Amino acid sequence: MIFDTKCKKCRRVGEKLFLKGERCFSQRCAMVKRPYAPGVHGKNRRSRLSEYGRQLLEKQKIRYAYGISEEQFKNYFKEIAHQKGNREELFVRQLEKRLDNVVFRLGWAKSRSLARQIVNHGHILVNGKKLDIPSYQVVKGDMIKFKEKTKKSPLVKDLAESLKKHKAPRWLSLNAGKIEAEIKDEPKLENFDKIGELNMVIEYYSK
């Protein structure tokens, strides 16, 4: 069986990162079939990591999960480095407030990678204007919705029904019937999925 690059990322860090939506919850998941690192020697590759190695691993888990480049990830830390407050929470805000992540959190896409495609293809309006930048940082008061033309597409037509069971984070106000939402507050540390150890990521970039 051939696994794609998303599956290999999960196998590389030794943990499910839920990069492929529903497939990650099924027996088809690569971490169910081959729960070891990719490559010929994958089964025997796991070894005890140094402190630096552990920090690097935790960073990669979070970076892969959010689909962010190394440069973007590093820039997020630079932006919060001199801000007052809990650095872990400040870092979470940078990640969670990305437009592609908001689309994912609202239940409009089954994975962040699909959410990124939806944004890239210009299907999302922010305050009535088309925005095709996945890394755009939403702010309190922003109104998010699909373009009217997109609402008539197969992508969205069955979404209203599935959204009735979806529970969006408290910082997002979702109108499931109209398939639109408002940014009500700042994301909190509690909104972060326990994908990786944030404190180790902060330590990694603080050197």
Rank of each mutant, 00 (worst) to 15 (best):
I144M: 00
I144G: 01
I144D: 00
I144P: 03
I144C: 01
I144K: 01
K145D: 14
K145Y: 04
K145R: 15
K145T: 15
K145C: 15
F146H: 04
F146D: 07
F146M: 03
F146W: 03
F146S: 08
F146L: 07
K147G: 01
K147F: 00
K147D: 00
E148D: 14
E148M: 03
E148F: 00
K149W: 06
T150Q: 04
T150P: 03
T150D: 03
T150C: 03
T150W: 02
T150V: 06
T150I: 05
K151P: 01
K151C: 03
K151M: 11
K151A: 04
K152N: 12
K152G: 06
K152H: 10
S153R: 04
S153E: 04
S153I: 01
S153K: 02
S153W: 02
P154W: 01
P154Q: 02
P154T: 02
P154R: 02
L155W: 03
L155G: 07
L155K: 10
L155H: 04
L155C: 10
L155D: 07
L155E: 07
V156W: 05
V156Y: 05
V156D: 07
V156I: 12
V156E: 06
V156A: 12
V156Q: 08
K157I: 09
K157L: 04
K157Y: 01
K157C: 02
K157H: 00
D158Y: 07
D158F: 08
L159W: 06
L159D: 03
L159M: 15
L159Q: 08
L159N: 05
L159I: 10
A160N: 02
A160R: 14
A160Q: 12
A160Y: 04
A160M: 04
A160C: 02
A160L: 00
A160I: 04
E161S: 11
E161H: 10
E161Y: 09
E161D: 09
E161W: 02
S162P: 04
S162K: 14
S162Q: 14
S162D: 11
S162R: 13
S162V: 11
L163I: 08
L163N: 06
L163K: 05
K164Y: 14
K164P: 05
K165Y: 13
K165G: 09
K165L: 12
K165H: 15
K165A: 14
K165F: 13
K165P: 05
K165W: 08
H166C: 09
H166F: 13
H166P: 09
H166K: 11
H166G: 12
K167D: 13
K167V: 14
K167N: 15
K167W: 07
A168S: 12
A168Y: 06
A168P: 05
A168W: 05
P169G: 13
P169N: 13
P169D: 12
P169Y: 08
P169I: 10
R170K: 15
R170M: 14
R170W: 09
R170A: 15
R170D: 15
R170C: 11
R170E: 15
W171S: 08
W171H: 12
W171Q: 09
W171Y: 14
W171I: 07
W171C: 08
L172W: 11
L172G: 09
L172M: 13
L172Y: 10
L172R: 12
L172P: 13
S173H: 11
S173V: 13
S173Y: 09
S173C: 09
